[in-house]
Design a protein around this nucleic acid. Structure first.
Lengths: 374, 374
DNA sequence: CTTGATACG
DNA sequence: CGTAGCAAG
C-alpha cells in the first residue's frame, strides 16, 4: 500500500462528502464490479454492515482520528488516535510476532501447502521473527513479496528449500522484489511477466524490471507469485498499473491454455467493499479505485478464476494488510490485498485457504496459506 | 568525526607499518607541534605509556579487532570486538545516559557556566535524554554543535534560555548546524565566520553556509561557538578545513583586539598524541593529521590562546568523543575534539573546565563545561 | 554504528 | 509508521 491510512482518513479530509454523505457512486460501483460469483462476494449481513457504517460516521466516530488525518500538523486529535479501543471483533490485533506457533494447523496428507507473504523488507522482517514463523509454517512453497533486496540472498532458508527463485528490481535498489522458495522441484520457471504475449514472433520483453513475478510450473498447475505495482499516493502510477494488469491477464490466459494456474501474492487491490474496513472515503485511494477493482474483476471473469479466500469465506471480514500508520493493526483497520486466485478447475482440490491473522509483527501484511491436493 | 574508528584500525590495515614498526615520523611530528606551553601537553608517565603501546601492538592485542578493521566482510574477528574487556582505567564507559545527575557540581558563586556539546543530531539526542541533562546542568550558556536541523526549533529550551541563536546549513539539509542558548543577554551576536577579514572595504562574506559558528559578545569576552569542518574520510576536505582554520584565526584575532575570546565547540582536531587513545596509526586520519594539528597550534601560538582543559589537566587522558563504531565508548577508545580555547588574559578568571565524561548516551560526544568568573 | 533526508509504501 | 539506501560523521 501507499500512504493509505487504511481508514481513508486523508481522503476523507479532502473529500468529506465521501464520509459524510451516502456514497452513492461507491454503492453503484460496488454493485457493478462485484465478483463473478455473486455469492462469494455478497455484502455482509445488514446488521454488521450498519455497525461498520456507524464506525465510519464522523458523528459517531470513537476517535477524532477516525475522520481526521493524523498527519495534519498540530492536530490535538493525534493523541486520541492512540487511545486503546475496546475491540468490537474477535480478530487478533497483536503488533509483535507470536511467541508460539502451536495454532498453525497440521498439514493434511497428500497436500501441498503454499504460503504467500509480503515481507515489506526481508531483512527487517527476519530481525522481527520471520524465520521462526517460516520454520513453524513449514510450507512446501513459500512466496515472498517486497523482499527489498538488492541482490538475492541465496542462503535464506536454503536448508529447507532446495529450489529458490529471486526476481529483483533491476532499476531501483532495495525496491520491490519477489521470491519463491520451494521444497518441490518445478518443471520450469520464469522471472517477470511477459509484456507482449500477443505479438509474434517470439521475443517477448518481460516486465521484470522491478522484480515483481516468479512463475513455477508444476505437474498440475502453474504458480505465479506476484507483487502487483502500487498505484501511488496520487495515483500517479495507476495507468502503469492498468497496463500491468493487462500483461498479467494475457500471461495467465496463455498459461491456462496449458494447465490450471494459481496466481498469488500481494495483488495490491481490495476487490470489493467487504475487503477493507473503511470502503467509504477510499474510492480514490490506491488499491480501491474503481479502475483497479474493475481490472481485477475483468481478469477473474475473463479467465474464470476464483478469489479463493473469499470463495471459502463469503462473508468474513478479515484482512491481510494493516498500515503501519495510525495504529491500524491495533484498530483492525485493514485491507485484503493478498490472494490466491485459482483456475476454477482447481477448486475441487483445494483443502483450505486461510489468513494467518495472528502472524503480524514482522511486516505490515500477514501470511495467506493455501492447502491443495496433489 | 568521520569514519575514524578511534583505534586507527582501518588505517592500520592499509598501513601496517604505522602500527607494527616504531612510528618515527609520528614521534617527530608530535614533538614538533607540541602545544605552546610544553608542560601542558607532555606525554603521560612512561608506565602508562608502555601499557598503551602494548594495547596497540598487534601481537599483544586482546582482540583481533584491535588491529583489524571490523568492517572487512566475513571477518570472524568481528564478534571478538564485542567481547567485554576488563577496563584498565577508571573512566566511565556507560553507553546510555545517566539516570541521575547528582554528580554535577554545584555552580560557584559569581560564575558563569558555559557548556559545549556536539549533539550529533539534536532530535535523536533529545529522544535519548538530552533534555534531562540540559536541565540538570543548568548552564548559563549552552553551545550545541551538529544540531542537524533544517530549520531552527525555537521552542527548544525556550523556557530557560531567553536568548537563542541558530546557525543552520544553507546548503545541505540536516547537516551541521550550531546553536547557542543563553540566559544572559549578549551585547551583540553574529552567525558564521567572516572569510575575508583582512580585506578592505567592509563587505566580508561570512563562512556560514554550513551553520558552523555563532558568536556572542558579552561585557568581558567574545564567545565563539564553533563546529569546525571534518577533513573527511579520505581527507578530501582537508584543504577546505585549512582555509577555514585561517578564517577562524583571523576572525579570533580581530575579536581579540577588542576583548578576550572564548573559542569553544567541536574543533574537530585532537591536538597532540595524548588527546586520543590511539595516536599511532591515526596520523593520516581526519582530526589527527599533522596539517590539522599544526593549524591548531598556529592559532594558539599566534593569538596566545590556551587550550583550557589541557592547561588544567596536563597529564590526564580523557576524551570528549567516542566513535559509535566498534564499541569505542565501552573500550574507552576516544578523542579529545571539544575545547574551550581562551585568551590568556582570561586564565585568572577560570574556575574550572571539566569533561562531563559520564554524560554519554545521547551523542557520540560528551559535554565540556567551563566555569568562569564574571 | 548512528543521524537525518529521500523514495516508496 | 516503517523499510531501504544514501551521504556524512
Amino acid at each position: 500500500m501507499d500512504d493509505v491510512t487504511g481508514t481513508g482518513d486523508s481522503v476523507a479530509q479532502a473529500h468529506p462528502e465521501l464520509v459524510d454523505g451516502a456514497d452513492a457512486a461507491q454503492v453503484e460501483v460496488s454493485a457493478a464490479i462485484s465478483p463473478a460469483k455473486k455469492k462469494t462476494a455478497k455484502a455482509p449481513s445488514s446488521k454488521k454492515r450498519a455497525k461498520k457504517d456507524q464506525e465510519t460516521s464522523p458523528a459517531d466516530a470513537k476517535t477524532a482520528a477516525d475522520v481526521i488525518d493524523p498527519t495534519a500538523k498540530d492536530s490535538t486529535d493525534v493523541k486520541d488516535a492512540e487511545k486503546p479501543e475496546k475491540p468490537d471483533h474477535n480478530y487478533p490485533v497483536n503488533t509483535a510476532m507470536p511467541t508460539s506457533y502451536d495454532f498453525l494447523p497440521p498439514k493434511a496428507e497428500k497436500s501441498v501447502r503454499i504460503v504467500s507473504l509480503n515481507v515489506a523488507g526481508i531483512q527487517a522482517a527476519r530481525k522481527k521473527g520471520l524465520d521462526t514463523y517460516i520454520r513453524a509454517e513449514s510450507a512446501d512453497i513459500l512466496c515472498l513479496q517486497e523482499t527489498k533486496l538488492q541482490a538475492q540472498d541465496d542462503a535464506v532458508f536454503a536448508d529447507v528449500y532446495p529450489w529458490r527463485y529471486w526476481s529483483l528490481s533491476k532499476t531501483k535498489k532495495g525496491y520491490s522484489g519477489t521470491c519463491v522458495l520451494s521444497k518441490l522441484p518445478p518443471l520450469s520457471t520464469r522471472l517477470g511477466i511477459p509484456t507482449t504475449t500477443t505479438t509474434t514472433p517470439a521475443p517477448t520483453e518481460d516486465e521484470d524490471d522491478e522484480g515483481r513475478a516468479v512463475t513455477l510450473e508444476f505437474e498440475s498447475f502453474y504458480l505465479v507469485a506476484n507483487y502487483v505495482p502500487n498505484a501511488g499516493q496520487k495515483l500517479e502510477r495507476l495507468a502503469h498499473k492498468r497496463d500491468y494488469a493487462g500483461w498479467v491477464r494475457e500471461y495467465l490466459a496463455s498459461l491456462q491454455t496449458t494447465k490450471p494456474v494459481i496466481w498469488t501474492g500481494d495483488l495490491n487491490v481490495a476487490h470489493t467493499a467487504v475487503d477493507l474496513t473503511r470502503p467509504k472515503g477510499n474510492t480514490r485511494t490506491a488499491g480501491f479505485t474503481v479502475e483497479e477493482r474493475e481490472d481485477f474483476s475483468t481478469t477473474l471473469t475473463q479467465l474464470d478464476l476464483v478469489d479463493l479466500w473469499r470463495h471459502l469465506h463469503p462473508t468474513e471480514q478479515d484482512y491481510t494488510y494493516y498500515s503501519y500508520r495510525f495504529n491500524c493493526r491495533a484498530k483492525h483497520l485493514g485491507w485484503r490485498l493478498d490472494y490466491f486466485v485459482v483456475s476454477r478447475a482447481l477448486l475441487d482440490k483445494v483443502r483450505s485457504c486461510e489468513i494467518r491473522n495472528k502472524v503480524y509483527g514482522c511486516s505490515d501484511h500477514v501470511p495467506l496459506a493455501l492447502e491443495i491436493e496433489v
